[in-house]
Amino acid sequence: MGAIFRKELRGYFTGITGYILTAIMLFMIGYYTVSYCFSYHYAVFEYVYASAVLVLLFFVPVITMRLFAEEKKQKTDRLLYSLPLKMSDIVLGKYFAALCVLALPCAVSAIYPLLLHSYGNFNFRLIYTTLACFFLLGAALTAICMFISLLTENQIAAAIISFVILLLNHFLNNILGVVPASVTAYTIITVVAIAIIGLLVWLVTKNGILADIVSIILLAALIAVRIIKPTIIEKVAGGILDKILLFDVFYIMVDGMLELSTVVLYLSVVVLFTFMSIQVLERRRWA
């Protein structure tokens, strides 16, 4: 794992990607620090991270886009397969390298509240919890986008798909808020979610029948519920969405309510998507 980690990390910082991304993230964090703390005189550094979350929308797709897509395109994946490495070494090496790029601006910005604390009353516990959640959120998004990079051969495509998915994740609840026919809307979302689950099952197992069975069972359940008691769909789907939309739970956390479920959710996403990446890489040799 060490060899892959070093190679990837080196890759970020021999080019300009690592520097530019770090610079942009630090610039935005600096900008929000100036607006909140200097212009408005708020001693609430956690808002800085709450706003900087938007930067993750493109930061994460850019750090993950070449992780696997580029290997496939340059045919260097053959080298990785023939080297005496476990698939988990490859995936984790790459994942941790991407996390390091994310950790760099987080670490630098951690100094800011310390520098500012003589000018106001900062709630350090909340600030650093927010920072930790910010990093965890980034880690979860990185796992998702790494998985997407694994599925594509073109890094630009990987970046765009990742960006769209993160964007949806961020704004889905806002969109749903303005859609009037909510039962229909939630039904559609549930159908899409079932399609995604089916697709993921197929990608991970390469077992088309299993994926079909899973999708059909879920769809049948959905249809049954829709006929018997349609309002349940809105309630259940809405409830689940509130719990699993990665950005929404972060904003709740910033307001001072850290729920264990938030941390569990982020860690689960990390584990699930790195596990699925390892499986897909393993299955790819069967393709």
Binding site: K7, G11, Q74, K75, T76, D77, R78, L79, S82, L83, P84, L85, K86
Partner: peptide, 17 residues
């Protein structure tokens, strides 16, 4: 992993970074 340690492989297209 053990089997691959015994082998050096050059694929058709050299896998170079």
């Amino acid at each position: 992993v053990k089997a691959k340690k015994c082998i050096g492989y050059l694929p058709e297209i050299p896998p170079l970074y």
